[in-house]
Design a protein around this nucleic acid. Structure first.
Lengths: 388, 388
DNA sequence: ACTCTACCTGAATCAGGCA
DNA sequence: TTGCCTGATTCAGGTAGAG
């Protein structure tokens, strides 16, 4: 192949399930799995074999067209997106760019593959139009509601508090992977809606430069990718990200036992992504199994704690006396040693042979201080949910 | 005028404020105010005077079954990017339709007028693209989060739980009406966000046919229009709805003391709308008043305070912490110890080494009770001016 | 080991009037 | 059109350091 393999990170390959018997996906051996390729994403995509990718996640430049500096009421200056990769001469130039990369993406996808593209009002209407013009079939538009967006400092508009994702297939007839029951489980027993409330990427998750600044101006939260990948791909699938940046897609794909292919132009971003992904520990094959049958309901979604990383996938939970245990799975369900699986409540009831059980008070996490009920963690999130 | 005046409902006219002195809008006497015109919306819009409308709210059809009399789209819809774009078929008709009615709408709008268009993923990307191609400038995209959406019965997708609205002006330079403070008030003291959580239209609000069925398949909730109209129009403004349906826009406009013009093809819908709007009681002029911005308050130069003796010449002013000081001079300028002199703003900026400073909130007078911001004294004067 | 506070920051198309 | 001046304007959450 003509492209340069900058990174060869095969740790995910080792632990990824070969194939899920219920959703076996054929992986092309010639693919540069779990690598980051440096270069123009259209060229790189065209160098890869046709119909070889299960899922594409793309966070393309938004073409923000920002004016001069923007300062906060306290006179501090907002660090805007001024990178050259977000600059286009005209809307036509942006449309052409969009057309080209989407066409290359379309070629790569398997017939029942799917693509996610995200954006803001600056670009998402262009993207959606090009997708439809290229005969992609929109399955949903998804709203990422940010719990903590940047305010509108001048009081001139509504707070721009969301971004939009489009989930589409290559055709109307395509039958994309969609884990309906897993999503329902994650959403407290009711259907997952088209609006997702998640915080932006801050704190330790946000990659920093040596100088302490942002490594990437638009790093996406892993919780967002968690939901995308869990809902519309299977373990062992190949997920391609043509605008890889600092590798959120790769990190979550590795964690969830999927293969990734990252395309990125900037060497700096690639270096950050490489280090980041190397640190990721894949969840075990049991942990990433998800609910395939209908389950009943916890009152507040335990999955939120998992999705937001407050409880890691695979974490062992304990009963108050510590004698009963279960492991946390990716969709917020639990699995215990005898093979029983279900919600935190169901599993608690099963192990105690009781008709019902409040999983929130039954289950505990173990740390150096001893056992902590998971309800304590829920309390944290509740404050956010109440406002959101 | 050549159009047919089907409905003459002038009850709103009587109670609508003549004009708000602080935001007087010029109303064209020849406009068919508070009426519903029957016919094709493009023809009707073209029969109305140019630049006569303050706000347009449009909920266009999502799936058009247009007749075969449409020509191929002209290249103005999608500015010719490349030849490879020519893959349109059925979408062409919808794009052309969108182009035509938006062009007519654009002509009707005053220079600082604004337009709202709502839709779902089936059509909103087409609408947004045409808006941008016609040089409309998007202010926000707004997400209507439905509290009670229709579930996805087959379990094949995420519950489609939202619709999208685009708020746009005719140009980047336009300065649309936006009642920031009113929105902030409505949202419990924090900025109104771009996602609005509101229930769909059900119960008594939903208009029924004599047979008991829905009078209109996509009747919008009045709460949605309430927020749109309150945020981006003034009492007495002219609001046009080119897809009037059963008249939600008219009903809320009348309630809030705005004028409406409704365009609708179907006589049935017009009949429902007429009965509905006739029942609406306009809120009183006091009731429709909203929290006003400081920007709209009359300007009071600092020198006025000195002139009126509310602050003596030579008074020492202090920063909030009391560590920075300056003395008031006869012309309302300040002088500080290092010899720098200028306006309250300039001196504040100088002493804090900031690019700018709001002197009204920066400077304080000292009395026995402590420090009082000079803005409090300005408030007194404004109250006096309001009475005079 | 706590609590409390001060400070920092995030995909942003972010002012208006007058000379 | 440009330049200058007035003066209006922020929310959630994480981090660091003080007490």
């Amino acid at each position: 192949m003509s492209h340069l393999r900058v990174v060869a990170d095969n740790t995910a390959t080792a632990s990824a399930p070969k194939s899920d018997p219920e959703s076996a996906s054929v992986v092309d051996d010639s693919l540069p799995l779990n690598e980051i390729l440096q270069g123009d994403c259209v060229d790189l995509m065209n160098s890869l074999p046709e119909g070889s990718v299960d899922l594409i996640f793309a966070d393309p430049p938004y073409n923000l067209q920002l004016g001069g500096d923007l300062s906060r009421p306290d006179n501090s200056v907002v660090d805007g997106v001024t990178e050259s990769w977000d600059q286009y001469d005209s809307m036509d130039a942006y449309d052409l760019f969009t057309h080209d990369w989407l066409q290359a993406a379309r070629r790569l996808l398997k017939p029942d593959g799917a693509i996610w593209v995200m954006g803001s009002y600056h670009n998402i209407f262009r993207v959606g139009t090009v997708l439809q013009d290229q005969k992609f079939w929109i399955q949903n538009d998804i709203i990422w509601r940010k719990t903590n967006p940047m305010p509108n400092f001048r009081g001139t508009r509504f707070t721009n508090a969301h971004e939009t994702l489009i989930w589409a297939t290559k055709s109307e007839d395509a039958r994309p992977t969609f884990h309906y029951d897993a999503m329902k489980m994650m959403n407290d027993g009711v259907q997952m809606r088209s609006d997702w409330t998640l915080p932006i990427c801050t704190g330790h998750e946000r990659l920093k430069t040596e100088g302490g600044g942002k490594a990437h101006p638009t790093q996406k939260p892993e919780s967002l990718l968690h939901r995308v990948i869990l809902s519309t791909s299977n373990p062992g699938d190949v997920i391609l990200d043509p605008f890889f940046g600092t590798g959120t897609t790769g990190a979550v794909a590795k964690k969830l036992g999927r293969h990734f292919i990252g395309l990125e132009r900037e060497a700096d971003y690639i270096a950050h992504a490489r280090k980041r992904i190397a640190k990721v520990r894949p969840a075990g094959t049991e942990a990433i199994k998800i609910t395939r049958s209908k389950r009943s309901e916890p009152r507040v979604p335990f999955a939120t704690l998992v999705e937001r990383g407050l409880i890691d996938i695979g974490t062992k939970l304990f009963s108050a006396k510590g004698n009963l245990t279960a492991k946390v799975r990716a969709d917020g369900s639990l699995a215990c040693d005898d093979g029983f699986e279900g919600s935190i409540h169901k599993v608690g009831a099963h192990l105690t042979d009781a008709p019902s059980c409040n999983g929130w008070t039954f289950w505990h996490t173990m740390n150096k201080d001893g056992l902590t009920p998971i309800d304590a963690i829920r309390t944290q999130i509740r404050a956010e949910m109440a406002q959101a």
